[in-house]
Design a protein around this nucleic acid. Structure first.
Lengths: 243, 243
DNA sequence: CGGCGTCGGAAACGATTGGAAACAATTCCG
DNA sequence: CGGAATTGTTTCCAATCGTTTCCGACGCCG
């Protein structure tokens, strides 16, 4: 049903990071912890997260800057951690729009409560990001994210099932990158792969049947042996001419 | 355009009430303070409010009950005040859906920050505050919230039953989000789903029969398998030309 | 060049999920 | 009180999706 929320912690103090991670894991969250902005970017590329817990003081790019960047990109909920109470005023003054704030040292239960509140507020699952434009296109194909429909270069509707659309959306969000089966499963279902699991393979096969000119020689979805799959087309935001 | 936000404070401790009122007035809010649930009801009859600050412990009907009532009526943002930190867990456990929580004694600046955050969220999100205008529209449809009537893009009245309208309103308040059946049931009736309950499914089906061009291939209400449903259109506040 | 192990594609199967229809309970209204 | 409208429940069925199995493709090694 509602899958377990996936939370990304950006915190350079290893002790706090492990403490919090463990506590939250014990409370039914999936946790990934990273130590700085660069690692955060990588993590965001690889997986889908429901909420970010962000330390203000970080080596390299600091939390404020990261927060602003995240905000300009999307609407993922953010909880900020600060070392000093006085900082909160400064943060608020800067209006960088975190969803909540917490002063260190904090009780993990407090963080837990805030996370739950923010997640509940955010409402449902962060839907397959129906961003600004709901239509994207690639190699003549058009994909309408809002109504989850696909049209081939001839403008005909190609009916996809829900899981197929989810997978295609995951590919479209990360084109021209090798994605492991594990990543794809995380992106589409927010869960890890069981050993011997082949469901992504099957789904790719079904997508190919419906989309590839010749499924034996795929042009859109490439197989990367012992690596995963890669979506090769370039994504355009403005919808291609259907004619 | 952005008028000064109007805030209703429900707090029986006169000292806190005046203190907070004065502080918030100094920060450009319009404030009305009342001491219990009955007065709150009267105030809500008389004026429009953008947010309610609600004390948990109140004489007569307590804050929890009030909160649930408010939630079942509309989507006005609520911030709850509690006397003890431990209560937060209890409140969260009860899932009555305030937008934020604050433990007494609190710094008024903290309350200010929370209010701003909640308002920003409520105002900035794609979900417009249905309370503002009584008419909202999507994909050519018009829904008059005040008289609970729906008109199709041709301007013809489409008769919906009460439960159908409630569900449609819930969707309109959270468009483009995946909403679980549990959430939908909570939003429309304020109760949890029993195991094997299918009533939301049936209601969705009935809505589709009345609203979708082709109910077999829904454009407005998408099924998200093993997740729930998603209302895909964008909500506009200015009503379309009735034609 | 050929054998072997690994990897991925395809097909078949079975479990889960959601749509639809029929029915029962409840509410509404006079 | 009675009938109609409304709403929830149950049942059946088709679509969907994950699993399993088999087999061919590929690479590594001698």
């Amino acid at each position: 049903m509602t899958r377990t929320p996936h939370i990304l912690i950006v915190e350079d103090d290893r002790e706090i990071a492990t403490l919090v991670s463990r506590f939250l894991r014990n409370n039914d969250f999936r946790i990934k912890a990273v130590a700085n902005g660069r690692e955060m970017d990588v993590a965001l590329q690889d997986g889908r997260f429901d909420l970010i817990v962000l330390d203000l003081m970080l080596p390299g790019e600091d939390g404020l800057s990261l927060c602003r960047r995240l905000r300009s990109n999307g609407s993922i909920p953010i909880i900020m951690l600060t070392a000093k109470a006085e900082e909160i005023d400064r943060i608020l003054g800067l209006e960088m729009g975190a969803d909540d704030y917490l002063v260190k040292p904090f009780n993990p239960r407090e963080l837990l409560a805030r996370i739950r509140a923010v997640l509940r507020r955010a409402g449902g699952t962060p839907a397959p990001d129906v961003g600004e434009s709901s239509v994207l296109s690639f190699s003549g194909w058009r994909l309408d994210k809002a109504v989850r429909r696909l049209f081939n270069p001839q403008g005909e509707r190609v009916v996809l099932t829900g899981a197929e659309i989810d997978l295609l959306l995951a590919f479209c969000e990360r084109p021209r990158r090798v994605l492991s089966r594990d990543q794809l499963l995380d992106l589409t279902q927010g869960r890890a792969a069981a050993p011997f699991e082949r469901s992504i393979d099957v789904l790719v096969s079904r997508l190919r049947q419906k989309m590839e000119r010749n499924p034996r020689e795929p042009e859109l979805i490439q197989t990367i042996r012992s690596g995963g799959y890669m979506f090769s087309p370039e994504i355009e935001l403005s919808p291609g001419n259907p004619g």
